[in-house]
């Protein structure tokens, strides 16, 4: 449990640093003096701010959770169990694997269908598909060597 406490402490510090960086990024993004060329550009700018704020909220939630765990021995043990539970890990692995396959299938179909209407979107989707597939192959290779 001492090792886990040290790991939690390290994660806590890392998240605090990430939180500060995100606050600065959110402020910088909100203050960025962009020229509204079209509705689409404005929409993307709104999305950027939204994603930053959403991520920031998730970081703050994690910080509060870790802080509670560091102050209370029972909460620390509960967090330990929550994170190391083998059934949860299996569920996570299965969900990730299925999601990846579903994502690859949907992306392939979307890339083919959009090819009939818009070449740029189709090429972008094919590029994303290639990137995800390559990442999958590399990680599979890595874990095959590891275990």
């Amino acid at each position: 449990m001492t090792e886990f406490r040290a790991a939690v402490s390290r994660r806590f510090k890392g998240l605090v640093v990430a939180c500060v960086l995100f606050v600065l990024t959110v402020i910088a993004t909100a203050l960025y003096n962009y020229e509204a060329q079209s509705n689409a550009v404005e929409f993307v700018h709104g999305l950027q701010v939204g994603i930053f704020i959403g991520t920031l909220l998730l970081i703050v939630k994690s910080i509060l959770r870790l802080r509670t765990a560091m102050k209370n021995e029972t909460s620390l043990k509960m967090l330990y169990i929550e994170e190391r539970d083998e059934r949860k890990q299996l569920v996570q692995q299965k969900a990730n694997s299925l999601s990846l396959n579903a994502l690859l299938l949907i992306l392939s179909l979307a890339a083919i269908v959009t090819g009939f209407f818009h070449a740029t979107i189709s090429i972008t989707l094919f590029a994303v598909l290639a990137l995800i597939s390559m990442t999958s192959v590399v990680t599979r290779f890595y874990y095959n060597r590891k275990y």
Partner: peptide, 8 residues
């Protein structure tokens, strides 16, 4: 006692 969740 065995370090898992109740759901397990």
């Amino acid at each position: 006692a065995v370090g898992v969740t109740r759901q397990t």
